[in-house]
Write a protein that binds this DNA or RNA. Sequence first.
DNA 1: GGGTTAACCTGCGGGC
DNA 2: TGCCCGCAGGTTAACC
Length: 288
Amino acid sequence: MPELPEVEVVRRGLERWVCGRTVEHVQVVHLRAVRRHQGGPVDFASRLAGRTLGAAQRRGKYLWLALDPGDGDEALVGHLGMSWQLLVQPEQAPDETHLRVRLTFTDGGRELRFVDQRTFGGLAVEPLAASGVPAALEHIARDPLDPLFDDVVFGQALRRRRTGLKRALLDQSLISGVGNIYADEALWRARLHYARATETMTRPATARLLADVRAVMAEALAQGGTSFDSLYVNVNGESGYFDRSLDAYGQAGQPCARCGTPIRRDPFMNRSSFSCPRCQPRPRAGHW
DNA sequence: GGGTTAACCTGCGGGC
DNA sequence: TGCCCGCAGGTTAACC
């Protein structure tokens, strides 16, 4: 579910449905969901009660809402992990199987529910740093759709790395928002192998890669927007709104859209990497 | 200190 | 049918 385009869809949903409302009560259904909050679940709930939620903001795959905007120095920070959904639900709607945290509001309107199967994500109240970003997120790099993302600095940092290209793309301290799906899609578009040594990435190659990362994210975002359901703050992984557009990820055995060669799946970082063996040949040791 | 791996969870689908 | 295994869009702690 949650790479940059999906998280951005959630952010827009929060902006529309939750921003400006005052929290009445917080119910922590599952302790693990707030494990990152320093003070524990009771403190988490008491810090949120009575606070008004400000604008929804995002960095990479993280979201936050300032508390009591204008004079607050704290924010409600969330990460969606692998399987989170944030749902805006009527009070009478039955609890979801994996409901982890519930927020109700003083206006008596729809409640905000944090639903997660694997509990890899979580919520916390965090102090805001002087930069305006939650202190816990200051190590997260800007994302490629951020106007302040610096392509030149990224290229220099990339060449200083001594690792494979996809590992670098997934490193949120170097570039944020890119996950396994869009890394594979961007590498396919750029005709680059995931294991290509980062120090061999020339300026033009880096520029092309960044352009492809941005293009695939923008396309996914556009499609995520069309499937937005007004009842939910919705990222619907099951319906797979972008699935039809995927050229590499999950396409093992399917013909490459460019050359017809079957897409191949390789084990990668306890996961998978999908690529076209012909368009994205594995770099030979000592070359490039 | 940088790079890499293992672990954290639950559920689902495929193979036997 | 049922069990076991591998796999899942992420991050972090701990290890070289």
